[in-house]
Amino acid sequence: MMSPLVIIIVVWPVRGKENTTLPKRIRPDESGVDFSVEKAGKEGYNRGLKLSLNRTEIMAGKLIQLRTPLDDSAVKSLRAGDEALISGVVYAARDQAHKRLCELIARGEKLPVDLRGAAIYFVGPTPARPGQVIGAAGPTTSSRMDAFSPILYAQGLRATIGKGYRSQAVREALRQYGAVHFSALGGAGALLSKHIVKCETAAYEDLGTEAIRRLEFRDFPAVVAYDAYGASVYKDK
């Protein structure tokens, strides 16, 4: 008897035309990331980065490299659950800075930072020691910014990064304005600080740890928690 012929058709999801504006998707065999000592920096950074890359690649079969500012196609190519490494300028802002930005918007005044295409990281770092770029810099709870984020997405903000869940209104706003929210590993302030290579105060110095800072990320690991299509990585949240 002949064994039945089984034809398996593998369909790869196509998420948009490959061009230079799209984030680069890394496969395990072509990661393009240099693990060698030359690229070094500090040992801890390398160990941490190597760890993030290897495991994630094995796990998901892909890793997305993103560079800010993010354009529409970059945001639209991301799906909840995708693992990304973010590089480029990201603004640090938390509770009080959000309150002030939204008050300025309500009064129709000019913002101290340009939010078009920008990304905001919800963080209040520890003070840097002399010679350090920044102190510990892990994410703070995103939901405290739920009332403010939609107002900022409407101003062109493309991405937010924090820890934990977002409200239904935020998810709606992400869809409406074509933005994305990332989750970074809560409580990994030392590890994540190694992925921030530059830090300067951008506005509201009087707010101390809550001031707006202009950070430069290098391969900052984050998971797409809520995408521009209304999907979430969290079960029931």
Binding site: G44, G135, A136, A190, K194
Partner: peptide, 19 residues
């Protein structure tokens, strides 16, 4: 990553968490 975090914190004198 959390294990790596406590190693970096100890070795490089960066607090474990920003909070």
């Amino acid at each position: 990553q959390l294990i790596e975090n406590y190693r970096i914190a100890e070795a490089e004198k960066i607090p474990l968490c920003q909070d």
